[in-house]
Amino acid sequence: MADDKHPDQDDAPELDEQWAEDAHRYQGDRLVRRGKGRPPLTAPGAEPKREKVIKVRCTAEEYETLKWRCPKARLAAWMREQCLNPDGDWVRQTQAPEPADPALLRQLAGIGNNLNQIARRVNSGEWGAVDKVQVIAALAAVERELAELRALHR
């Protein structure tokens, strides 16, 4: 007769291959292989355990900016949401950019050559201070024009 103090023999675990695979193994008193142990305590449908670590170095200023932008208490959770957002507007470039107009490239190369010649003359010491100021003013004007063009074509 089976009771709480004397369980029925059928309540004992089956000593099959799976049981042996899950068991600890010893050689004498030394543990050779640890068994599987308890199953994980995660419920079905629960979020998987995060085991991978990504270390991101940033300056103190960058860190403070991230914390300022983060509306959550935990920065890591917010960063995961931002970076792994499946509904985001991420565009992964899968092909090469469209080729540029060859005439435009020739013009840009010519501009680059002219800038190199100007830089050589400025650094050679052939020009006086007034000449250098005029060249710098002209280059600043060119820089402004290029910034406007860049803004139009972004």
Rank of each mutant, 00 (worst) to 15 (best):
R120Q: 10
P86L: 06
N123W: 05
C70D: 03
S124P: 11
P86A: 04
T94C: 04
P97C: 09
Q107C: 02
R106K: 07
T65L: 15
A23M: 11
D29E: 09
G128K: 08
K67E: 07
L75A: 05
P97H: 08
R74Y: 07
A23Q: 07
P99D: 09
A73V: 13
V53P: 00
A77E: 12
T94W: 06
R80N: 05
G45T: 05
I118R: 02
W78I: 10
N116S: 11
A103Q: 10
E51Q: 05
G37F: 00
Y26M: 03
R106F: 02
L31E: 03
C70V: 12
R92Y: 13
D29I: 03
R121Q: 13
K72N: 11
G110E: 01
D89S: 14
R38H: 08
L41E: 09
Y26V: 00
A77R: 15
T59K: 07
T59D: 05
P102F: 04
R50D: 00
A76R: 14
R34S: 02
R33H: 02
L84E: 08
R69P: 03
V53M: 01
E81R: 13
A119H: 12
Y63V: 04
Q107V: 10
C70Q: 02
G35I: 06
E64G: 10
L104A: 06
L41S: 15
M79V: 15
G35W: 01
L31H: 03
T65H: 14
R92T: 13
K52C: 03
A77C: 09
G45L: 10
G28Q: 01
Y63Q: 14
L75I: 13
P86V: 09
N113H: 10
R57T: 06
A96R: 09
A46H: 09
G35F: 00
A60Q: 13
Y63M: 14
D89F: 07
L66F: 11
E126W: 08
N85F: 04
P86F: 08
I111T: 03
M79I: 15
P99F: 05
R50T: 11
P71G: 06
R30P: 00
W78S: 03
W127F: 13
L104H: 02
G128S: 08
E47V: 12
C58V: 15
A76D: 14
A73C: 01
N123D: 06
A109M: 03
R106H: 03
R38M: 09
R74C: 12
R69N: 12
T42E: 08
G45K: 07
W90K: 13
A77K: 14
E98Y: 05
C83F: 11
K67N: 10
L105Q: 11
R106E: 01
R69W: 15
R34I: 06
T65Q: 13
K67V: 14
L108H: 03
A60G: 13
T59H: 04
I54Y: 05
C83Q: 04
L41I: 10
H24C: 00
L75S: 04
R80Q: 06
